[in-house]
Amino acid sequence: KLPPGWEKRMSRSSGRVYYFNHITNASQWERPSGNSSSG
């Protein structure tokens, strides 16, 4: 399961899957890690 705020999306241009955070408006190709504590 993804960390809070993150969701899986697909890029229309490349067709690749990326991850988008609707809370911080951040996007990245790598899967966000939800196990590590923020610090």
Rank of each mutant, 00 (worst) to 15 (best):
K1F: 13
K1N: 14
K1W: 14
K1E: 14
K1G: 14
K1P: 15
K1Y: 11
L2K: 15
L2R: 01
P3K: 02
P3G: 05
P3F: 02
P3A: 04
P3S: 03
P3C: 09
P4L: 08
P4M: 08
P4S: 07
P4W: 08
P4A: 09
P4Y: 09
P4E: 10
P4R: 07
P4H: 09
P4K: 07
G5N: 06
G5V: 02
G5F: 06
G5W: 04
G5K: 01
G5E: 05
G5Q: 05
G5D: 05
W6M: 00
W6R: 00
W6I: 00
W6K: 00
W6E: 00
W6D: 00
E7G: 04
E7L: 06
E7R: 04
E7K: 04
E7I: 10
E7T: 09
K8D: 02
K8P: 08
K8L: 14
K8G: 05
K8E: 13
R9N: 02
R9C: 10
R9Y: 06
R9D: 01
M10K: 13
M10P: 03
M10H: 10
M10S: 08
M10I: 15
S11I: 12
S11R: 05
S11F: 06
S11Y: 07
S11G: 06
S11H: 15
S11V: 11
R12Y: 07
R12P: 12
R12Q: 11
R12D: 09
R12C: 15
R12S: 10
R12A: 14
R12L: 11
S13F: 08
S13A: 11
S13L: 10
S13W: 06
S13Q: 10
S13G: 11
S14A: 07
S14T: 14
S14M: 07
S14C: 11
S14P: 04
G15W: 01
G15F: 02
R16W: 04
R16Y: 05
R16V: 08
R16L: 11
R16P: 03
R16E: 10
R16K: 13
R16M: 08
R16F: 07
V17N: 06
V17A: 07
V17E: 14
V17Y: 12
V17W: 12
V17L: 06
V17Q: 05
V17R: 03
Y18G: 01
Y18L: 02
Y18K: 02
Y18A: 00
Y18V: 02
Y18P: 01
Y19K: 00
Y19E: 00
Y19N: 00
Y19H: 00
F20L: 03
F20V: 06
F20C: 06
F20G: 01
F20W: 09
F20E: 04
F20Y: 15
F20K: 04
N21D: 04
N21I: 01
N21T: 00
N21K: 00
N21F: 04
N21W: 00
N21S: 04
N21Y: 03
N21Q: 02
N21A: 01
N21R: 00
H22W: 14
H22V: 15
H22Y: 15
H22A: 11
H22G: 05
I23M: 08
I23D: 09
I23V: 10
I23G: 04
T24G: 02
T24M: 03
N25H: 14
N25A: 07
N25R: 13
N25K: 15
N25V: 03
N25E: 07
N25Q: 14
A26V: 15
A26K: 15
A26E: 15
A26S: 10
A26W: 08
S27I: 15
S27Y: 14
S27N: 05
S27K: 13
S27H: 13
S27E: 05
S27V: 15
Q28E: 03
Q28P: 00
Q28Y: 04
Q28W: 03
Q28G: 02
Q28T: 05
Q28F: 03
W29Q: 06
W29I: 08
W29G: 03
W29H: 06
W29M: 07
W29Y: 10
E30M: 05
E30G: 05
E30C: 09
E30V: 05
E30R: 04
R31S: 09
R31V: 13
R31G: 03
R31L: 10
R31M: 10
P32C: 02
P32I: 01
P32S: 01
P32E: 01
P32T: 01
S33T: 15
S33R: 07
S33D: 13
S33G: 11
S33V: 14
S33L: 13
G34A: 13
G34V: 13
G34D: 13
G34K: 09
G34L: 13
G34H: 12
G34F: 14
G34E: 15
N35H: 11
N35V: 12
N35G: 11
N35D: 14
N35K: 10
N35W: 05
N35E: 13
S36C: 12
S36A: 11
S36V: 13
S36G: 13
S36H: 10
S36D: 13
S36Y: 06
S37R: 10
S37N: 12
S37H: 10
S37D: 13
S37P: 12
S37Q: 12
S38T: 13
S38E: 14
S38W: 08
S38V: 12
S38F: 09
S38H: 10
S38N: 11
S38D: 12
S38M: 12
G39F: 05
G39S: 12
G39A: 13
G39I: 12
G39N: 12
G39D: 12
G39R: 10
